[in-house]
Structure formats: structure tokens, C-alpha cells
Computed example of a mutant assay.
Amino acid sequence: MEMTRPTATQPGYVALLDMPSPRLVVTHLPIQFAPKGVSKPQNKVKVLVPMRNPKDTAVSMYHFRAKMLKLAGANAELPWEKFAQDFLNGTVPFGDYCDHLLGWWQMRDDPHFLFLKYEDMKKDLLSAVKKIVAFLEVDLDESTVKDIAEASTFNNMKPDLDSSSMAERRNIARKGIIGDWKNTFSSEESAAFDAWYEKKLTGTGLTFDFE
């Protein structure tokens, strides 16, 4: 499967073939569609799986999707109410979000995988960076680790993204906070999402903070 960015000059898999090892591969694919080298990694391959609570994810995806549609030349607005229902139905890019999460979550005991929650990184980014450093088995001194954490804050990354030569990246960074869903969801939508993700995630060991 291949999704081409509006500004891409060549397919992603072609660009990856030309990249020297070690390579950094970024994908939104569900585990069943991901290349075997990512879904069932061997040897030195390491896979970071970042996750975010479903409500904030829906709002973030909505704003990004709306911007991408305009970038592609669409004239019509994307109604939030329709998008929220589509998100619940799994009729959005990459499918049902909870199914997406659980597909990767089944690999949580595999030492090739490290799972990170957006909410945890927002609350204590330095600890998250230390986990990643240990997971990747790289030798970095304390000062370098702190510099990486500081450079990785939303406020420090947003200016670089906003000034990117790639239009897609210029539309990524918005607020970067936890709980922004409250500014968008109606009480009925919030209740529907609660029932949906509780049905999907209860008993799986996967929980999220929503504020």
C-alpha cells in the first residue's frame, strides 16, 4: 500500500530504497498492512509506537485532514460532526483508531517494540527521552539527553515545522496540548466516544489520560 503526499516527487518506498542504513521509517499503517520488517522486526530493528487518547486524536486528525483537503484543492468545508461520526465508524484514513492501536498493542511484550503515550511525554518529556535512549541502546551523556528533550518540546519544534519547505509539515503543529477535545466535542459526541473506546479497550490493559 502506498499513499502519496501532494508534494512528493516520488513514492515513499522508492525514497526508502535509496536511504543508507540505519534508516528511520515513519508509517501510519495498521500492523496488518505494515512491511514485515516493521510488524515482525528481527535483529537490530527497533519500533517506537506513539499513541494518543482517541478524543484528542480525532480532533487533531480533523484539523489536519481539513487542511490537507484544502491543499489538494477541495473547496467544500469538512464538517466536524460528520468527521466525528466517520471516526467512530472507522471510515477515516487508516481505519478504526482503536483497532489500529490494538493491532500494534499485541506486540507490547516483544522487546523490539517501545510504546509511548503522548500524554506521558507531555507531562514528563525527559523521562520519555531517557526510555528511548535506553531502548535504542545508544550511549549519550546526561547533558545531551536533556538537550534532546528540550529540543523536542512542542514550542521548540513548532517553528521548524511551520517553516518547513513541505506543505504537509507546515500543517502538522497546532496546539500540542492534552484535553483540547473539550473545545470541540458536544456532550453527545463525548458520550458516544466514551462508549466506543471503552467497548474496544476494556480488558486490554490499554488506558489513556484525557486531560
Rank of each mutant, 00 (worst) to 15 (best):
R5L: 10
A8I: 00
A8H: 05
T9N: 06
G12K: 04
L17V: 01
M19P: 00
P20M: 01
S21P: 00
P22C: 03
V25I: 15
V25P: 02
V26S: 13
V26L: 13
V26Q: 09
I31L: 10
I31Y: 03
Q32T: 08
K36H: 11
V38M: 11
S39T: 03
Q42I: 09
Q42E: 13
K44R: 14
K44I: 01
V45I: 15
K46D: 01
V47N: 08
P50H: 08
P50E: 05
M51H: 06
M51W: 08
M51S: 09
N53A: 06
N53Y: 08
A58V: 02
A58W: 01
M61R: 04
M61H: 10
Y62H: 07
H63T: 09
F64N: 05
F64Q: 08
M68H: 04
A72M: 13
G73F: 02
N75M: 08
L78V: 06
L78K: 03
P79K: 07
A84N: 03
L88T: 03
P93A: 03
F94P: 00
Y97M: 05
C98N: 12
C98R: 08
H100E: 11
L101A: 12
L101M: 15
L102N: 06
L102V: 08
G103M: 07
W105D: 10
D109S: 14
D110I: 01
D110R: 11
P111E: 09
L114C: 15
D120H: 12
M121V: 12
L125T: 13
S127Q: 14
V129C: 04
K130F: 01
K130A: 02
K131Y: 05
A134S: 15
D139T: 02
D141M: 00
T144V: 14
V145C: 07
V145A: 10
A149H: 05
A151N: 13
S152V: 06
P159H: 08
L161F: 15
D162K: 05
S163F: 02
S164L: 06
A167E: 15
E168F: 12
R169T: 13
R169N: 14
N171H: 15
R174F: 14
I178H: 14
K182M: 14
N183G: 09
A191D: 10
A191G: 00
A195R: 12
Y197P: 01
E198M: 02
K200P: 00
T202H: 12
G203W: 09
G205A: 10
F208T: 06
F208W: 11
D209E: 15
F210L: 14
F210E: 14
